[in-house]
Simulated assay, not measured.
Amino acid sequence: MESVQQPAAGLARQEPDYDALLRANLERVFNERDPSARLRAVEALFVAQPTMFEPDGIVEGRAAIADVAGALLETFGPGFAFVPDGTARGHHGLGCLRWRAGPGDGTVTVTGADVAAISEGRIARLWVLLDPPAR
Rank of each mutant, 00 (worst) to 15 (best):
R98K: 02
C96W: 00
A117H: 12
G79Y: 03
G95Q: 08
V83R: 14
T109G: 06
A117V: 13
G86M: 13
R89H: 12
R100L: 09
R89L: 15
A88S: 13
H91Q: 14
P84Y: 01
A117P: 06
A101W: 02
A117T: 11
V115K: 01
A116N: 01
H92Q: 11
T107D: 00
V108T: 12
D114N: 15
C96G: 06
H92Y: 08
A71W: 09
G79I: 12
G93A: 14
L97D: 06
P103K: 05
H91W: 11
A88P: 10
P84W: 03
T109C: 00
V115C: 11
D114P: 12
A88C: 10
F82K: 12
G90Y: 03
G112C: 04
H92K: 08
V108P: 04
A71D: 10
A117Q: 13
F76K: 14
A113L: 10
L94H: 12
L94V: 15
T87M: 10
C96E: 03
V115M: 11
V108C: 05
W99A: 06
R98N: 03
A81D: 09
G112H: 00
R98W: 00
R98Q: 03
D105L: 06
V115T: 13
G112D: 00
F76P: 13
R98I: 03
G86F: 07
G112K: 03
V83M: 04
L97V: 08
H91N: 15
A116Y: 02
G102C: 09
G95W: 01
F80M: 06
P84I: 05
